[in-house]
Design a protein around this nucleic acid. Structure first.
Lengths: 344, 344
DNA sequence: GGCAGAAATGCAATCGATTGCATTTCTGGC
DNA sequence: GCCAGAAATGCAATCGATTGCATTTCTGCC
């Protein structure tokens, strides 16, 4: 019942645990014949080393923690997969926490991760205080931030250029002739949501368009808030002719609301979504959307972490890597037709 | 730099490590005054117990492993989230592996999980041999299978009634008058794919409909295979008037293909999808689809596992729990119109 | 104040692999 | 066959928390 240990093996073979251990970890250093014998016995007995004991002794768990706000969101699914793919070959295993966009849950996750002595953490911050993160970093656990940044010092960060994303969305709509433009922004305590809105507004104001406050809806990055936001925007007396939505979940919700209201895209309303989730192309018309190399983001974060993990504790300066978003123009955007604009 | 240990604390407080350990794990057993003192010191020093050492001593990692075929698939995202939510309160942490529908990757994942001494495993099998799984179970690691079953003995299993799912899909299409019905089935080495096809075919044959072999496309549960499958079906000389697709990823691919071919749903083709992913309602027309209580599946698996983990090693008989699927009729299915049927 | 019994604390072994150092076994050259 | 040096192996401490058992410190009661 209890799995065999090195000691069991040692007795069986009349060897010391040291030799067996070395045979497994530094093959060159034991005599080939001995090694053969050991391997055979392992095969026969079905021994597999106890990683917990190893971790304790080596002070290194070969485990990385990942905290995402919502694993059912396609974006984070892709991120997790990319990270998994990048660290797997280096024999790291991945502990995943779904913080559910809740700072308290994130704090608990951090605590668990620290107790479990993970080698490093990749985090998509959901907010909350920085104190315990500072402690974690101070105690030597490298932390990478992804998609959002919390203002923490000494973390590498992988971001999308959110200002840029907001800007190109706005510019596209402006170029199509839209003037009454709305947006469903994300929660403003998150850096990415702020950036997307900032870039968006800046581009509008550059085109001398000022947004009435009611044309900005603030969601929470969840589907339902997109639904509600769209409902609100669409029930405005001066309804926007185009909207930009700051993430894919809210985009989905908005689309559901818009269909229920029998508003036609892009005839009655142009729409730019975010993240280019797989389903963006399934829609009819397919969705015009801000896109970014999602798997690259994950891989990049993983590589930054691995770098910190494998390099000698060089107190490297922390890095920020920004990926450029791009606009994929599909069918949900169209030029404004004057007749429409004045219809109601 | 090195985080403080029990011993550090003990010296600081002039106590033994035992007392501190007990203060933390069995509060009742140390004098309240002592406890206060300890707690204060912990607060001050910033001590947090080393979970690795604890796991080694207690032979219990409080960690469960989860292997899914594709974490970017909405279905598995929901599953992971549900499991996470269910085990979190019991202080279990979750290690996630994405097997990428690859048996070899799954085998490697199992090996890692065993080395790390996880307390239990929830697995959505992707195929491959059962030997090492038997070994894991024999050595006392409880295993739960989810969504698919591998034929392994002594595992609890949580499934959808796939035969039923296939049946109701078929019945719906038959009731709408369709006779030339196609399907994009999943890979037949997976139990769920087999069940869905089996139920589907059975219902058809009950209605005296026999499927020409070319009306059955076999995909691999990935989007691209849905795309290809749909292309093939739609290029048949005797094109089906309705199709049933056995998972959500392939459904997405099929929809993309169908749109590109300018075939209109449901006018030219009725379509029943699977899994009721979030985006099924975003489509136009919204997707008619087989639905099941996805988060329940995950929660149920988690509970079965927790049960095995917490109950005294009762050699309980293994259980199989089947959830009933249901058909959500939305806009992608319509009655067959005779004129259509004979159009080409 | 003394004593029995309970409550609190301490001691030391333990979990299983790793590793610095000591010891044994090989190897080749004479 | 012997010896120096290299190669292989063994010994024992270590990682940090837990826990059975031993010891000390409290209680309450006479």
């Amino acid at each position: 019942m209890r799995p065999p240990t090195l000691l069991d093996l040692a007795k069986e073979l009349n060897l010391s645990t040291s030799t067996i251990s070395r045979a497994l970890t530094r093959p060159g250093v034991v005599r080939p014949a001995t090694r053969e014998r050991i391997l055979a016995a392992i095969e026969k007995i079905g021994f597999s080393p106890n990683g917990v004991a190893r971790s304790l002794r080596k002070r290194e768990t070969k485990t990385i923690g990942i905290i995402v706000p919502d694993i059912t969101n396609w974006f984070f699914g892709v991120i997790v997969r990319a990270i998994s793919g990048a660290v797997g070959p280096h024999a790291y295993m991945m502990v995943v926490f779904d913080a559910n966009e809740d700072p308290e849950a994130e704090a608990k996750a951090l605590q668990s991760l620290r107790e479990r002595q993970v080698s490093g953490i990749i985090r998509c911050p959901v907010g909350g205080e920085n104190k315990s993160w500072e402690a974690a970093i101070a105690s030597g656990t490298p932390v990478i931030e992804l998609d959002r940044c919390s203002g923490l010092r000494n973390v590498d960060t992988v971001l999308i250029d959110d200002d840029q994303a907001g800007r190109i969305a706005a510019e596209c709509l402006i170029a199509l002739g839209h003037r009454r433009i709305g947006t469903i922004a994300g929660p403003q305590h998150l850096s990415n949501a702020r950036g997307r809105l900032r870039g968006f507004l800046k581009a509008l104001s550059k085109a001398s368009i000022t947004l009435a406050p009611e044309l900005i809806e603030y969601g929470d990055f969840r589907e339902s808030s997109g639904y509600i936001g769209a409902e609100r925007l669409m029930s405005l007396r001066a309804r926007p002719t185009a909207i930009f939505i700051a993430n894919s979940e809210m985009t989905g919700g908005a689309i559901a609301a818009i269909r229920e209201l029998k508003i036609r895209i892009p005839k009655d309303l142009s729409l730019i979504g975010f993240d280019d989730a797989r389903w963006a192309r399934y829609l009819d018309p397919p969705l015009t959307t801000i896109s970014h190399p999602t798997p690259e983001l994950g891989r990049c974060a993983a590589e930054l972490l691995l770098d910190r993990l494998t390099k000698v504790k060089s107190h490297r300066k922390s890095r920020v890597i920004k990926f450029e978003p791009e606009l994929i123009v599909r069918g949900s955007t169209a030029p404004l037709r004057i007749t429409k604009q004045s219809r109601r």
